[in-house]
Computed example of a mutant assay.
Amino acid sequence: MQDKFFAKKRLNSILITSLLLLITYGAITVTEYDVVKGFASIPEAIEWGFNNFYPDEKSLEKLPKIWEKLQETLLISFAASTVAGMFALVFAILGSNTTRVNSFIGTLARGIATLFRNIDVAAWAMILLFSFGQSSLTGYFALFFVSFGFLTRAFMETIDEVSNSSVEALTATGASYLSIIIHSVIPASIPQMISWLLFTIETSIRSATLVGILTGTGIGFSFNLYYKSLNYNAASLVVLMIVISIFTIEYISNYIRRVIL
C-alpha cells in the first residue's frame, strides 16, 4: 500500500515537471528567446555594470534630492501599511471564524480581503491613475489596498490560531462580544499581528519603487528619470539608497520581532 502511494507521488511529480518544462519550452518558442545567447550575455552585462553603474562624484551632488524622494517613499509606505493594518484588524475580527458576528458578514469580509489581496500593486497603481493621476495619493492607495488585503487575511489566520480556546472560555462565562475582543482576542494576537505589520511595511517599501515609476512620484520616479536620461551613475546611487533603506528597515523589523515574539 505504501509503495503504491509513493509510486503515485513520483508519477505526479514527473507529470508536473514535464508540464512545466513543456510550458517553458512553449514560452521560449513563442517569444523567440535565445537561451544560449541569454546566458552568454551575462558576463558582458556584469562588465557593463562595473564600468557604468556606480555612483561617482558628480552623482553624489544629487544625494539631497534623492534622499528627499526616498523619505517621501518611506513615509508613504509606512502610512499605507499602518492605516491598512487598522482597517485590516476590524475586517479580520468580522471575518474570522472565531470572532465573526454571523456567516454572512464573515463571508463578506473575507471576500473583500481576497479581492484587494489578489490584485497586484502594479495593477492597482494603473487602475488608480485614471482617478488620481500621477500623484503621491495614487501610490498611497495602491499600497494601502494591497496591504489591507494581505493583512486582513494574515490577521484572520492569527485570530483563528491563537484565540480560539480563550474565546470559547470567555463565551462560556457569559462575557459580552466586545469584552471578548478587547480582553482576549487583541492581547493574544497583537504580537503576531505586529510581526505581520512589520513584514508588510518591508514589502510596501520594496513595492513603492515600482509604484513610483508608474505614478511618477517618490524614489521610483527619480530612478526612472535618471535611467531614461542615461545618467546611470545617479540611477545607481538611487538603487544603492533603496537597498540600504530596505536592509535597515529589515534589521529593525527583525529586532522588534525578537523582542515581542
Rank of each mutant, 00 (worst) to 15 (best):
P55A: 07
D56I: 08
K58N: 15
S59Q: 02
S59Y: 05
L60M: 14
L60W: 12
E61F: 13
L63F: 13
P64Y: 02
K65V: 08
I66W: 02
I66E: 00
W67C: 14
E68N: 14
K69H: 10
L70T: 13
L70D: 01
L74C: 08
S77F: 08
S77G: 09
S77Q: 07
F78G: 00
F78R: 01
A79C: 09
A80V: 09
S81E: 07
T82F: 15
M86F: 15
F87S: 09
A88K: 06
L89P: 06
V90W: 11
V90R: 05
L94Q: 10
G95C: 04
S96K: 04
S96D: 04
S96P: 04
T98H: 01
R100S: 13
R100E: 12
N102W: 09
N102G: 09
F104S: 13
G106D: 10
G106R: 11
A109T: 04
R110V: 07
R110P: 02
G111Q: 09
G111M: 13
I112Q: 02
A113G: 13
A113D: 04
A113M: 05
T114P: 00
T114E: 15
F116Q: 07
F116H: 12
F116C: 14
F116M: 14
R117K: 15
N118C: 13
N118W: 00
D120S: 15
D120V: 08
V121E: 11
V121K: 01
A122S: 14
A122N: 10
W124P: 07
W124T: 06
W124C: 03
W124Q: 04
W124S: 07
A125V: 06
M126A: 07
I127C: 05
L129H: 04
F130C: 01
F130W: 12
F130S: 14
S131M: 14
F132V: 03
F132I: 00
F132P: 02
Q134Y: 11
Q134D: 00
Q134S: 10
S135E: 06
S135N: 12
S136A: 09
T138Y: 06
T138Q: 10
Y140C: 05
F141W: 13
F141E: 02
F141D: 02
L143P: 11
S147M: 08
S147N: 13
F148C: 07
G149P: 12
G149S: 11
G149A: 10
G149F: 12
G149L: 10
G149I: 12
L151K: 08
T152L: 03
A154V: 15
F155P: 05
F155C: 10
M156C: 06
T158F: 05
D160P: 05
E161T: 15
V162A: 06
V162T: 13
N164L: 12
S165C: 00
S166N: 13
S166I: 15
S166Q: 15
V167G: 08
E168C: 09
L170P: 01
T173W: 06
G174S: 04
A175V: 14
S176R: 13
S176D: 13
S176I: 08
Y177F: 09
S179N: 14
S179C: 00
I180L: 02
I182T: 13
H183W: 03
